[in-house]
């Protein structure tokens, strides 16, 4: 464990708790893409299948359990409890356009042709594009609630910090995982546009609104 990965994990935890809190407190999931949340749920479930078989540390197990629980709770709030506030007209990104190619790629490019490894690879690839429906929804509505932009900033920062963690691990532990690194770079690049808007607008107290 290194500081970059720890801060990255905490930023990730902050992001998903922030979103759950926003939906719960405002009793509304307006502006939130349910499709992205479904895909994040899929990411955690396919990645953490080894939750009960492969014990690494208390921290690792606890975080995995929290991520899965919070993701399921968020999906429940969006599609059941506060379903009336779900903005399905703007959450129109076709998930199958992401899941099918990612599933195919996971079969073709992986470290080991075993079920667990292919599911892990699928999870890594899916996570890199899972935010697209959310970014697409913001581009359609033209704006995002400030709390939702904080959620996206924390979520984008987590994988950016993981890239620093991978550089650190490469130089100090001689370890690197190309699949995770390439997917992590793609994932972070997708946030660049949002990061620019966040820094130039939200940081100056303005609402995040895309140029119409």
């Amino acid at each position: 464990m290194n500081i970059f990965r720890l801060v990255g994990d905490l930023s990730h935890l902050l992001a998903i708790l922030l979103l759950l809190w926003k939906i719960w407190k405002t009793r509304s999931c307006a502006g939130v893409s349910g499709k992205s949340q479904i895909m994040f749920g899929l990411v955690y479930i396919t990645r953490y299948l080894d939750l009960f078989t492969n014990f690494i540390s208390i921290y690792n197990t606890t975080m995995k359990a929290i991520f899965i629980a919070v993701a399921i709770a968020t999906i429940y709030l969006i599609y059941f409890k506060f379903k009336a506030t779900y903005d399905s007209n703007h959450d129109t990104f076709r998930m199958e356009f992401l899941i099918v190619p990612v599933g195919g790629l996971a079969f073709l490019v992986n470290h080991d042709f075993t079920a667990l490894e292919i599911l892990w690879t699928f999870s890594i690839y899916l996570e890199s594009v899972a935010i697209l429906p959310q970014l697409f929804m913001i581009s359609k509505t033209g704006e995002a609630e400030t709390i939702t932009s904080h959620y996206l900033f924390a979520l984008g920062s987590y994988r950016a910090l993981y890239i620093v963690n991978w550089v650190y691990r490469y130089y100090f532990e001689g370890f690197f995982d190309l699949i995770a690194i390439v997917a992590g770079c793609v994932q972070t690049i997708l946030y660049c546009d949002f990061f620019y808007l966040y820094v130039t607008k939200v940081m100056h107290g303005k609402k995040l609104s895309l140029p119409a």
């Binding site: 990965r5 990730h12 492969n54 690494i56 991520f67 470290h111 993981y162 370890f175 995982d177 995770a180």
Partner: peptide
């Protein structure tokens, strides 16, 4: 093997 190291990350 070395790949299992990768799985210590979340």
């Amino acid at each position: 093997d070395e790949n299992d190291i990768a799985k210590d990350e979340l």
